[in-house]
Nucleic acid binder design. Sequence first.
DNA 1: TTGAGATACTTCTACGCCGCAAGTAACTCG
DNA 2: CGAGTTACTTGCGGCGTAGAAGTATCTCAA
Lengths: 388, 388
Amino acid sequence: MSNGSTGWPSLTPATRAAAVELLRHGPLPRSALARRLGLSAGSVTRLVAPLLAGGLVAPVGPGRDGGVGRPTTPLDVVATGHRFVGVKLTGSHGYAVLTDLRSTVLSRVDGPLPGDRSPSDVVAGVADLVAACAGGAALTGVGVSLGGRAADHRVVTAAPYLGWSGDVDLGALVTAATGVPAVVDNDVLALTRATHWFGAARGGDRFALVTVGVGIGYGLVVHDRLVDSDDAGVGLVAHLRLDPLGPLCARGHRGCAEAMLASGKIRDAVAVGRGRVSSYDECLDLAVAGDPVAARVVGDAGRALGRLVAMIANLTMVPVVVLSGDGVRLASVAPEAVAEGLAAERDPAADPVAVEIHPGGFDEWARGAAVTAIQSFTLSGDGPVARH
Amino acid sequence: MSNGSTGWPSLTPATRAAAVELLRHGPLPRSALARRLGLSAGSVTRLVAPLLAGGLVAPVGPGRDGGVGRPTTPLDVVATGHRFVGVKLTGSHGYAVLTDLRSTVLSRVDGPLPGDRSPSDVVAGVADLVAACAGGAALTGVGVSLGGRAADHRVVTAAPYLGWSGDVDLGALVTAATGVPAVVDNDVLALTRATHWFGAARGGDRFALVTVGVGIGYGLVVHDRLVDSDDAGVGLVAHLRLDPLGPLCARGHRGCAEAMLASGKIRDAVAVGRGRVSSYDECLDLAVAGDPVAARVVGDAGRALGRLVAMIANLTMVPVVVLSGDGVRLASVAPEAVAEGLAAERDPAADPVAVEIHPGGFDEWARGAAVTAIQSFTLSGDGPVARH
DNA sequence: TTGAGATACTTCTACGCCGCAAGTAACTCG
DNA sequence: CGAGTTACTTGCGGCGTAGAAGTATCTCAA
């Protein structure tokens, strides 16, 4: 598995584009790669040659496609040649996964953050998690994600759960502490990246991601590229009004996404109705079992989620909405409610919206962080992520 | 004004990109062009040379920028070298404008469509309008827009206002009838194109357009490119619920965008309240004058419009929403209501949304059709529009 | 079995288009 | 009037592309 002398950082732009295409959409024969890149067959042969020579790409299988003519030779990137660690930070814990170049999870570790959440303590905690997760393997990159904002994938400019004020160059600090290039990203955007490149929306040119859990998250990919802005990932969707008769959120919005869908709100609503406190998962179980209070709360939430999906699809024209997050079982438990809400807000003559339910726990969030690192490495050799 | 032997169709891709950049953002000195295109100064000099030699581009003015160093030599596209006609079709009439390469309107014409709205009658009507509008000038392209859908900017696949069933290759028919390359586009998408390249959002990489009038239209540009889909432009936004207590639309939606904002609905609501029928403009005048019924109806509509803008901004992350259409005076008459609705649905901590009000009559719609033709011509030499 | 047809891939060449570096032009400021 | 600054030009080396011609490997039918 020698990477030869030609690793990703030394690739020329066109060759890198071919490698990224194989990473995202492979295995692909040269002919399909030519179509996808809009190049001639000759160019692809030339571009792929150094990748094969360097061991970054290898032929895979016989590639039967049944038809007439010479069979294809599918190529694929050698994903095991690199190791990444992604770390998702909450206000109190860190969750780390070790992955290969395609974000396949190889091992996982988590633990509380040490000290008082100061930048130096957090960096020390991250470095410990990275070392424990890597288990001695040589790492190509590290990604860290958190609720908040990061400029240039390095400098944290807002981190409400960590209580940081002012800018913190977390990327540089983690790089220094681990000796591995590190990037930082908003957690929802990182999960959107993972969904885009390797997850439920792999290959999709346009989709939206909604996460349901403690909070409501939202990410958008249009024209095969993540939509980023200063406000991306920080929850502008959480307070969209979904039900004029719904409960209140902490800001006094009636029936907003957070009030209807956040796991804590669902727990509260069930507890108030039944006069007894249950966990979120118990609430879902009760709804399945037919408990009238839980069924009503979960049904209302499912309908609200369906309406949210419809609003997203109507305004962004995405054909696919991926649902994820710790609380996404809501959508599995009440699929007919989701469909009902979706149908209520979506023109029946319009193209149907595909709703994909993708389970998401902390490991998925950590995997997102790893994908930010993978994108950074594959798209620019080093330095922060440029596009996609 | 000779175009020399090197017209737009014969431009090489890189040179065309430079010309398009100047068309969209000019006048620009070579140095700024280099920055925008991400090229070196030397490359720009080389790319621009054939454009100058061919008369497609010319230096303009002395280009004072006050600073030290050699003054710039701003360049600009010679917009007068080409003529386009855009035609907007309704169910009964056609509206045509003659424009230059930058969609500056040079003359206008309109009239009822002859016959029974059959494809052949519509084509004859379009050809008459084109001839009358051009007034003998040689045309480079013709654009036709209508409510409905067109595939590949040629084949009309849906045209509810014309009552066509089945596909009609309107592009080929108009091309044959006029002898000028013709493209076809959805009317809202065409207006979005015009706004993007030459209108209120010129230079913007991301914005949304909402049209208010007989119906509600919506267009979206993300990553400097129009968001298109089978459902784009056909009014998925019209039935978004904006007010749980609002009136009903024809589909039974309470308080949807159409029920709240369509000029006919506003007229109806005012007429019911006052017991007397008024025109849409009179309704707005009455609201300004303080009539309680009109003021309430217009205020509710303004707040609904503000909420719609906020929902769009929250879900698409656009920094700008352009309001246009025949009925857009609503937003000018009730700006505080619009602001109120916007503030109610938008996180105060988020970046503010710029709301631009752009007057729009039938000529603006026709101008949109011309821009579809301009984009088709400038981006690909001939054939349908590829990107942007 | 064999040849025709089809599709995949390779090799070679011409050229568009790039960055870079060195040189020139035209201004401001002291 | 010269130094400094910015805009632009010119020439060179080279990357990366399409296109054409050729090769490889299959299916299918006679």
